[in-house]
Design a binder for these strands. Structure first.
Lengths: 204, 204
DNA sequence: TAGATTGTTAATCGATTAACAATC
DNA sequence: TAGATTGTTAATCGATTAACAATC
C-alpha cells in the first residue's frame, strides 16, 4: 500500500503538469517539476519510480502528455466517478457548486439533507431526504460520499452510509468518525487546518 | 521545529478531549484518547512528551481540563486571532458563515472581492475591494489570510498579501502558490482531497 | 501490596536524500 | 564526444513502535 504523502505528491505533480501544458510546454525535467511542486528533483524521480512511471529519456526529460496519461491511469480517470453529498449547509452548498470537481471527472450525482425546505429536484443536483440514500446509492453504484452535516449528526450519517456499502468518506464535520477499518475516511477539519497554519506561522 | 503530523495530532486530541468533556468525563488515559483519535497510546504519550505536557499521574491518567489548558497555551488561545478572507465565491461564502471558527477563537475580520456587487458593509463580515487589503491589514494587525479566489487570480492575490506582510496563507485555490520561504502556506485542494480519498478507497 | 499507567530510552521501520552508473 | 539527465541503489535521517523503569 502506497503512502498518503506519495499519492498527494503525485496529485500535485499532475496539477503542475496541467499548468505547464496550458503554458504550451511539451516536456519537463524532474528539476522543473520539482521546482513547481516544491520538492527535490530526486523526490520526483523516486515517486515516479515507485509507481513505475519510467518514461523519461536521459537528457531529454519527460513528455508531459505521457506523464499525464500515466497519472490518469493510476487515478482511473477513464470515466466519471459518482459521489454523493450529505448535508446542504454552508459547506455542502459550496461543494455542490464547486467547479474544480468536473475537471477531475468527479460528479456529485445526488445530495441529501434532513431539512425538507432544502429538498428539491429543481436544483442543479437533486437534493433528497436522507432516507433515500439507500435507493440512490444502489441506483448509481456509489462507493464514495461526502459528509457536510453538523457535528451532532455526523456519526449517524456515517453509520448509515457504511450500512449502505459506502467504502470511502470525506468528512468536513469536526469530529473523528468511528468506522470499520475497511472504510477509508479522509477528515478535513477546516478550523484545525486554520489552527495548524496559525501555529506554523507564529512559531517560525 | 515540530513536524506537521505532530501538530495535527495535537489538534485532533483537543477535539477528542472537548468531546469527552462534553460527555461529562474529567480524566482520560492515553489509551482512551488514543482510541478516540485513532492512534496508539504510546503515540499519545510521545506527542505529549515532545511538547512537554507532563501532567499525567501514573495509574491516574490525565485531567482533561489540564490537558486542554496546555493545548490552549501551545496554540495561543488566550485571545482572538484575526484573519482576512479574499474571494467571496462558493468557498469564500461558506467559510465566512462557518460556525466552527468562533469556537477556536479564529475571527474573519474582513473579506475582499474584486466584484463590486459583492462588496458590502451590511453583511456579517464587511466585504471590501481588494485595494483595501493594505489598510485593513494594518488596522487589525492581520498576519493570516485565506485565499478563495479562482485559480487565475490566486498568485496575484498571494503576491499582494505578502507585500502587505501577511505571514501565513491557507489556499483553497487549486494551484501551487509561489512564495518566499518565510511565508507559510497551507494548500487545501478540494479536488485533490477527493482524488486521494478515491484512490485509497479503490486500491484497498 | 500488586497491578496499572506514565514518561523516556532504545529499537525498528520507513521515507527522504545522496550518490552514481547508464545513456541519450 | 562531453555534458546532462534519468532510474536505482545505498546512506541518512526522522518518525513510530516497543520496552521498561518509575511510581501512584
Amino acid at each position: 500500500m502506497y503512502l498518503k504523502n506519495n499519492i498527494r505528491r503525485l496529485l500535485v505533480y499532475r496539477q503542475c503538469l496541467i499548468k505547464f501544458k496550458e503554458l504550451g510546454f511539451e516536456i519537463v525535467y524532474s528539476y522543473n517539476l520539482g521546482c513547481e511542486a516544491n520538492v527535490s528533483p530526486e523526490q520526483v524521480r523516486k515517486d515516479f519510480s515507485k509507481f513505475e512511471i519510467k518514461e523519461g529519456r536521459r537528457k531529454a526529460g519527460y513528455k508531459i502528455d505521457h506523464l499525464l496519461e500515466s497519472l490518469d491511469t493510476i487515478f482511473k480517470k477513464d470515466k466519471d466517478q459518482n459521489v454523493i453529498l450529505v448535508g446542504m449547509g454552508n459547506i455542502g452548498k459550496a461543494l455542490s457548486n464547486y467547479k474544480g470537481f468536473a475537471q477531475h471527472k468527479i460528479v456529485i450525482c445526488a445530495a441529501f439533507d434532513i431539512d425538507p425546505s432544502k429538498q428539491t429536484k429543481s436544483y442543479k443536483i437533486p437534493v433528497y431526504p436522507v432516507e433515500n440514500i439507500s435507493m440512490i446509492v444502489k441506483r448509481h453504484n456509489v462507493k464514495i460520499a461526502i459528509i457536510a452535516v453538523p457535528k451532532s449528526g455526523a456519526q449517524e450519517v456515517c453509520d448509515r452510509l457504511i450500512a449502505n456499502d459506502i467504502q470511502g468518506i470525506i468528512n468536513f464535520s469536526p469530529i473523528n468518525l468511528k468506522s470499520p477499518k475497511n472504510v477509508y475516511i479522509n477528515n478535513i477539519d477546516l478550523a484545525n487546518e486554520m489552527e495548524s497554519l496559525i501555529y506554523f506561522t507564529l512559531n517560525k
